[in-house]
Design a protein around this nucleic acid. Structure first.
Length: 206
DNA sequence: TTCACGATTCTA
DNA sequence: AGAATCGTGAAG
């Protein structure tokens, strides 16, 4: 699903519906960079989709101050505070006025920098396993909400490495689809995807 | 203005 | 199973 018109990760590519984009983001990289040049990147191994008509979507009822960026153009971040304790990072998808986003639930860190202070008593593949832990590790909070995901800025998406791209093209990238985690509404909608073999996935299912 | 609750995580 | 912890949004 990446023609010349819709280049991988371009705004046009992200302008599709969230359930289309979510599985396609698996294998892509998320990069976090600070003004001082420090940088962390990881492979996206778990995503969930939230879209119009979906009772679990923050934009389900109406446009509010919090969910405003979901109604905006694709390619921006949607960050929100959950349980007053953690933040969650989404990639806004679909066109204007169609509140849609893909929740980034877990990363497999690639080449963690030496200055990174890891969570205690956890193997590296668990450091970013879960949306809250991911944002805590990458220091993603409301100050990044609504930012354009642009290379060289504070946060952006990069294409998968060639091996992953080839595996996907050959249909060899094992992806599991399940229902979403932690919902009371829309709990039956199977809009969660993860790389079947990744140890960095937050929770196994089925 | 009030107030119940949540796209979570960690501990007992 | 329960706590931590607070902004959001639906109701009044």
């Amino acid at each position: 699903m990446s023609s010349s018109q819709t280049r991988l990760l371009s705004p046009a590519w992200l302008a599709r519906s969230a359930p289309e984009v979510a599985p396609d983001l698996l294998g892509c990289k998320l990069v976090r960079r600070w003004p001082d040049g420090r940088q962390i990147e990881g492979v996206i191994v778990e995503t969930e989709a939230y879209a119009p008509g979906d009772p679990a979507c923050h934009g389900y009822r109406r446009r509010t101050q919090r969910n405003a960026v979901m109604f905006g153009p694709p390619g921006h971040s949607y960050v929100y505070l959950i349980y007053g304790l953690y933040h969650c990072l989404n990639v806004v998808t679909d066109g204007d006025d169609r509140a849609s986003a893909v929740l980034i639930r877990a990363l497999a860190l690639t080449d963690p920098p030496p200055w990174l202070t890891p969570p205690k008593n956890q193997p590296i593949h668990r450091w970013a396993a879960g949306p809250g832990k991911l944002c805590r590790l990458l220091e993603i909070d409301l100050s990044l909400n609504g930012d354009r995901l642009q290379p060289g800025q504070s946060l952006w998406l990069d294409p998968p490495d060639v091996e992953t791209q080839q595996a996907r093209q050959q249909g060899l990238l094992a992806i599991t689809q399940t229902t979403r985690i932690g919902l009371t509404q829309g709990a039956d909608i199977p809009w969660r995807w993860y790389l079947t073999d990744s140890p960095a996935v937050s929770k196994r299912q089925k």
